[in-house]
Design a binder for these strands. Structure first.
Lengths: 183, 183
DNA sequence: TCGAAATAGTTAACGCTTTAATCAGTTCTT
DNA sequence: AAGAACTGATTAAAGCGTTAACTATTTCGA
């Protein structure tokens, strides 16, 4: 078989994620002259890593219990931060307010959440966990946390802290551009 | 105003992402005795960072052109790796084959992709960029890459390389568990 | 204090993704 | 060479998320 090289590029069918990234890197630089390949590599890898982990956790822990990834995230913040208004939940989870509203409907139907009128503002409501919701979170998080550990354990504790601080720096930096977030 | 402390916890409405993570950390450890908080912190941060970046790029670069994030990813791999079968595109983008099939339909309708019968296998097809697709990618990637740079520029080049290698290590590690991926 | 503007939540319409089922073509086994 | 098992792509049905419009309430300013 003829070895792949510049003149005989490897067939796309033989590429995996990392060899594709390498190929993309080379072509973006040499054929098109784009300047910021390292940035591309950072964001592509970030995206891929997050997708892999999220899909795995959802598929192995939450779907089997009939729960979606988003439902888990919503219950998670209310579980730990306590009763709150939908807009706060949206901010802490990164969802839109509409998504919270829709999720809330099903979670109330499943008996995990309760919605009560807000104290000070007649427009608003307070979301809180029911006893069943509380119990479910304690139970499901045991499994969730074990699997999180399986993932994170690939890195040393020091590496994990480094990763967190680099991601922190990435998302909290002051920027010339205005970052677009959900309405 | 009474300062927040253990006895007078801050109201959820006042939490931002990082103070929530800190609070979650504390409660998971002290109230519930979960062992792997650092893992939780790594994965929560990874997820949040990826969501922020992806949403921003989609909202500022791709939606205004009438294109979705996924459509961009699909065109991107075909642009750089060349014509390929749908299953290869699914593997490289991390989408399901059904998602590729659906996206392909609209992108062909928009004149950016072409679908031709595969050479060797009568069941398969080959997806390739049209001239218009090629031109659009060169054009849109200019903008995309500039904005990627704005994000990544928060880190030094060394930090970016560290981040990539930590994420690489995270997703390519051998594990006891079997990681769940898309069908 | 009264009307306008702003804000909280929900609803509606639409698009995208997922899993499961289906169709078509290939490969393996005998 | 024929049938069974397999593989690739597509389609169907269902679920979920998004933006935009809408309703109700509150706040601000003349």
């Amino acid at each position: 078989m003829i070895p792949a090289n510049e003149q005989n590029p490897v067939s796309p069918a033989d590429l995996d994620f990392w060899s594709f990234v390498a190929l993309a890197n080379r072509k973006l630089a040499t054929e098109y002259g784009f300047a910021h390949q390292l940035a591309t590599q950072v964001l592509i890898t970030l995206n891929r890593a997050s997708d892999l982990v999220t899909y795995d956790l959802e598929a192995s822990v939450h779907r089997p219990r009939g729960r979606s990834w988003s439902a888990f995230r919503l219950l998670f913040v209310i579980w730990l931060a306590g009763p709150m208004e939908p807009s706060t939940a949206a901010r802490l989870t990164g969802m839109s307010r509409a998504a919270v509203s829709n999720l809330t409907k099903t979670l109330i139907g499943d008996g995990l959440l309760a919605r009560t009128a807000a104290e000070r503002d007649g427009r608003s409501v307070t979301l809180s966990l029911t006893d069943a919701g509380q119990a479910e979170m304690v139970d499901v998080f045991r499994e969730h946390n074990e699997r999180e550990f399986e993932w994170a354990d690939a890195l040393t504790e020091a590496e994990q802290r480094t990763l967190i601080s680099l991601l922190d720096k990435l998302i909290t930096a002051e920027r010339a551009i205005e970052v677009r977030g959900r309405a």
